[in-house]
Simulated scan of single mutants.
Amino acid sequence: MTDGDLTDEERERLGDVVALQPTKNSELADRWGLEGGSEVHSYLENHLKDYYFRDENSLIRATEEAAEISGVDPGISENDDGSRVVRVPDLQYHVLRVLADEDEEPQSVVGVLQAVRALDEGLDPDNDGIREALRSLANKGVVEKVQLTVPTYRLAMSRDDLQVERLDD
């Protein structure tokens, strides 16, 4: 398959893989409006097989060619000064806004949920949505999971070293 053979939908979804990487089937299912991970896996295998791979943690990543074809910036990139740029969907963007800094006490999923709801921006995520957002951000390396009796989270780096860009839905 050459990039000229991709349909508009395939090209758009390839851009999602590039922008959200590293990602999981469930995150792409939500983004694409599919029923679940098996539909995503099937789509990837049938339409984008040459443009993605799974890393050692089974997370979905785009090939370099995929980034070139899609014209989309990768989900994470490093600046020359060592700071990091992360491109995330809306809920993850708001989670990063409220999450404890790297040198502060970590927050529980419920604490993050309450803080996101307190932003007063009409957001009403549930525990599962916040938990999945935190896991995805941890997979991207910008959030650390602090293992206590109840898992808690905080930024894995200084807020000053992190630039967050919200992806359009």
Rank of each mutant, 00 (worst) to 15 (best):
M1Q: 12
M1F: 11
L6A: 13
E9R: 14
R13D: 03
L14K: 09
D16S: 09
V17W: 11
V18D: 06
L20M: 12
Q21D: 08
P22Q: 00
P22R: 08
N25E: 13
N25M: 10
E27P: 00
E27W: 10
D30F: 10
D30R: 14
W32F: 10
W32H: 01
G33A: 06
G36S: 00
G37S: 09
G37Y: 09
S38T: 13
L44M: 04
E45P: 02
N46R: 15
H47Y: 12
K49G: 05
Y51V: 00
Y52H: 03
F53M: 12
R54P: 07
R54M: 12
E56M: 05
I60S: 06
T63C: 07
T63Q: 05
E65Y: 07
E65D: 07
A66Q: 02
A66N: 05
S70E: 01
G71H: 11
G71T: 01
P74Q: 08
G75V: 02
I76R: 15
I76Y: 06
S77W: 13
E78L: 09
N79E: 10
D80R: 03
G82R: 08
G82I: 01
G82Q: 03
G82N: 02
S83R: 01
S83F: 00
R84F: 00
R84I: 11
V86L: 04
V88A: 06
D90F: 13
L91V: 02
Q92F: 05
R97M: 11
R97T: 02
L99E: 01
A100P: 09
A100M: 07
D103L: 13
D103V: 10
E104N: 03
P106N: 00
P106E: 05
Q107E: 01
V109Y: 05
G111N: 09
G111W: 10
V112Y: 01
Q114H: 15
Q114R: 15
A115I: 02
L119Q: 06
L119S: 03
D120R: 14
L123H: 07
D124F: 13
D126C: 00
I130M: 04
R131I: 07
E132S: 11
R135Y: 14
A138M: 04
N139H: 12
N139L: 06
K140D: 06
G141N: 11
V143H: 08
E144Y: 03
E144I: 02
K145C: 10
K145F: 03
V146T: 03
Q147H: 14
L148D: 15
T149S: 14
V150R: 15
R154L: 03
R154Q: 08
A156I: 06
R159D: 10
R159C: 02
Q163T: 14
Q163W: 14
R166D: 05
R166V: 08
